[in-house]
Lab assay of single mutants.
Amino acid sequence: SSGAIIYTVELKRYGGPLGITISGTEEPFDPIIISSLTKGGLAERTGAIHIGDRILAINSSSLKGKPLSEAIHLLQMAGETVTLKIKKQTD
């Protein structure tokens, strides 16, 4: 049976990049997913974020019904501590 787990990851960026690339579309209900991780970057080092994971919220702002451009804007405005709500498929 296919299921999913949902969890929250807190990234402290200390002025540096998060080390993630996200992808999606401008269709508001398409998923926003992690499309790549910078090798040795902040997100990869947590061990908790993987390519293909879906981002449900950024700093408690839900991405439900929001296009990719809004998600990118939220990441850019997120500040030093970025909290990502992640949904991972478990097959």
Rank of each mutant, 00 (worst) to 15 (best):
I34A: 03
I22E: 03
T21V: 10
S60T: 13
G16R: 07
E26K: 15
G15D: 10
T38C: 15
Q76W: 06
K39N: 13
S36F: 05
D30C: 14
S60Q: 13
T21R: 13
K39Q: 11
S2E: 11
I33S: 05
E44V: 03
D30N: 07
A43R: 00
R45P: 03
S69A: 12
T8F: 04
P31L: 01
G3Q: 14
I5L: 12
A4Q: 10
I34Q: 00
K64T: 10
K66I: 10
T25L: 05
K39I: 08
E26R: 08
L18Q: 00
I32T: 03
I58A: 02
L42V: 10
L18K: 01
L42T: 15
G41F: 03
F29N: 14
T21C: 05
S36W: 00
G41L: 02
S1K: 11
Y7F: 14
I55V: 12
P17M: 07
E27H: 12
A78V: 07
G19D: 03
L37G: 05
P17V: 01
L56A: 01
V9I: 10
S35L: 03
T46W: 02
P28V: 08
S35T: 11
D53I: 01
S23L: 03
I34L: 01
Y7R: 11
L68W: 00
S36K: 13
S35W: 09
I55Q: 00
A78L: 02
I20L: 15
I6S: 11
L56T: 05
S61T: 15
A43L: 01
L11W: 08
A4H: 14
G24P: 03
E26V: 07
K12Q: 13
L11R: 01
S69T: 11
N59A: 02
F29D: 13
K12S: 05
P67A: 08
I32P: 12
E44Y: 06
E70F: 12
G65L: 05
S69Y: 03
I58V: 07
T8L: 06
S2T: 14
G65T: 08
P28E: 11
I58K: 01
L56I: 07
K12I: 08
E27V: 07
S36N: 15
T21W: 01
S23C: 04
K39G: 10
E26W: 02
I58P: 00
S61M: 12
G16Q: 10
Q76D: 12
Q76V: 06
E44R: 03
I58Y: 07
L37P: 00
P31A: 09
A43C: 06
G15W: 09
G52T: 03
T46F: 03
I32Q: 03
G40T: 02
A78H: 03
Q76T: 10
M77Q: 10
P31G: 15
K39R: 14
G41K: 03
E27K: 09
L68E: 03
I86T: 09
L11H: 03
S35C: 12
S36C: 06
K12F: 05
I20H: 04
S23V: 15
E44H: 10
K64L: 10
V9H: 05
R13N: 11
I5H: 14
S60V: 00
D53Q: 00
G19R: 03
T46V: 06
P28N: 07
F29P: 14
K66G: 02
G40S: 06
T46Y: 04
D53G: 00
A4R: 13
K12H: 08
I34M: 00
A4G: 15
I5C: 09
S23K: 15
E44M: 06
L11C: 00
I34T: 00
K12P: 06
T83N: 08
A43I: 01
S23D: 15
G15I: 07
L75S: 15
K64M: 06
L18F: 06
I58C: 01
A4N: 15
K64Y: 10
G3E: 14
R54V: 08
V9D: 00
G19V: 00
P67R: 13
M77H: 11
P31R: 01
V82A: 12
M77C: 07
T8R: 05
E26Q: 09
R45T: 09
T46S: 14
E27L: 09
R45F: 03
E70A: 10
S35Q: 13
S1T: 07
T25D: 01
K39V: 06
Y14K: 15
S1N: 14
P67I: 06
T21P: 00
I51V: 10
A43V: 06
D30W: 09
A57K: 10
A78G: 12
E44Q: 07
G19M: 06
E10I: 06
G3K: 14
I58G: 02
L11N: 00
D30Q: 11
M77Y: 08
T46P: 04
G47F: 02
L68Q: 02
E27I: 13
G41M: 02
G79P: 15
Q76R: 13
G40W: 02
L42A: 12
H50N: 11
